[in-house]
Every structure is written in structure tokens, then in C-alpha cells.
């Protein structure tokens, strides 16, 4: 089958031209997202700089086990999705759906662990900044700032993940209707980029939240 014969929007020369442009567009969007999260990283640097002891004391209150497990879950989810992309490039829709479903379930597991269990415990232990904040004394200021960072960063990452779940679900639905094949799998690849990016953000947030403050 000739490439030019595949359907494509009228501003493109060919389906391949359109597909590669969509991939480029997603990468540019992700570059924009890098700067979005970049603000959080800068706040982390500045707040920790002014209040190191308290900031680290806050970090020691986090649940390392859940955090680590969640990192493993997201990496695995991203790997499953990548396998799905490879399968559809070999026109294997059944395997694509299986891989996406696994990726989706793992994403959901992350959200449950993060917001159902970890946040729940954090809130129960009065770690949300405010008048009833658990840590008192000299370290209170910095620890509160850490938890401002923690709650804003995890909430925004969680929202991105939630959007990702929607997108992966949409891919599963479309794959179920048999819309993808080796010739046409652009949406699968584009959503994959986003899904892996959400993973990436977490990989960077993980040491910032759980590891660096856990010092002697």
C-alpha cells in the first residue's frame, strides 16, 4: 500500500507527514510541561535553602515505602505501555489492549496508593500545613513549607496522571473498535509520550520528596 493513499488531513502531504508532526507537537507540549513543573523545582530549591533543617524534617515524615512502591508501579506501567506501542506496530491489537489495560490498572493503583492511603495518613497525622500542623517548635516553619511543596506537587502530578488514565482509556476504546494498525497508530504513540512523561515527572519528584531530606 502506498503511503500517499492513506487518509490524512488536507494540510499534510501524507499520513506519515501528519503522524510525525503529531509526535513533534506532543514533544513541544511536554517541553512546555517541563517549565510548568520547573517552578515547583525552583520553589523546592529556594524554600529548602532558607529553611534546611525544618524542610528536611518535613521530608522525614513522608512514607518512603509507599513512595518507592509507587515509583516501581509507574515505571512498570510505562514499560507495559511501551510494549503496547511495539505490539501495534506489528498490528497486534489484542496485545495492545492487554498492555494498555495493565498500564491503566497500574496507573489507578498509583492513584489509590497515593491519594487513598498516603494522603489519607498524612492528613490524619496533621501534616497538612495550617494551625493544626503536627510539627511544632523551631522546625515547624520549614516542615510546613515542605508540605506545601509536597501537597501541591503530588496533587498536580496526580491530576496529570488522571488525565493520562483518561487518555489511555480512550486508546483502549479506540483499539477495541479496531481503529489502529501498523499503518495507523499515531494516537497510541502520542499518548505513550505523555504517559511516560508523567512517569518521568514522578521519577524526579521521588528523591525531592522522599530521599534528599531523609538525612542524618
Amino acid at each position: 500500500m502506498s503511503d500517499a493513499a492513506l487518509p490524512h488531513a488536507f494540510q499534510y502531504e501524507s499520513a506519515r507527514h501528519q503522524a510525525r508532526t503529531a509526535i513533534a507537537g506532543m514533544w513541544l507540549f511536554l517541553a512546555s510541561e517541563v517549565l510548568f513543573f520547573g517552578v515547583l523545582f525552583l520553589s523546592w530549591i529556594v524554600c529548602r535553602h532558607w529553611n534546611q533543617a525544618g524542610f528536611d524534617a518535613g521530608a522525614r515524615q513522608t512514607a518512603l515505602a509507599i513512595g518507592t512502591l509507587n515509583t516501581v508501579i509507574l515505571i512498570t506501567s510505562s514499560a507495559f505501555y511501551t510494549a503496547g506501542v511495539a505490539f501495534i506496530e506489528a498490528s497486534n491489537t489484542r496485545r495492545l489492549i492487554q498492555c494498555c489495560a495493565l498500564a491503566w490498572v497500574l496507573g489507578l493503583a498509583f492513584l489509590i496508593l497515593k491519594f487513598g492511603i498516603e494522603w489519607h495518613e498524612d492528613l490524619a497525622r496533621h501534616l497538612f500545613p495550617g494551625p493544626r500542623f503536627a510539627i511544632t517548635g523551631e522546625l515547624r516553619t520549614g516542615a510546613q513549607l515542605f508540605f506545601v511543596f509536597y501537597f501541591v506537587a503530588t496533587a498536580l502530578h496526580g491530576l496529570h496522571l488522571l488525565a493520562g488514565l483518561g487518555l489511555v482509556g480512550w486508546i483502549i476504546r479506540r483499539a477495541g473498535r479496531g481503529e489502529f494498525s501498523a499503518q495507523y497508530s499515531t494516537p497510541v504513540a502520542v499518548v505513550g509520550l505523555y504517559w511516560s512523561f508523567v512517569d518521568m515527572v514522578w521519577i524526579v519528584l521521588f528523591p525531592l520528596i522522599y530521599l534528599i531530606g531523609r538525612g542524618p
Binding site: R20, I23, A24, W27, A31, L35, G38
Partner: peptide
Amino acid sequence: GPTVVRLFAAAGLLWLLIL
């Protein structure tokens, strides 16, 4: 992907570094 993909990724990193 096309070359421009690497360009976009590099731009994201460079501007993060500036920030």
C-alpha cells in the same frame, strides 16, 4: 521521531536550566 523532536526536548531542558 523527526529531528525537531530532539530540538524541542533540548529547548525544554535549556529553559528549565535558565529558570
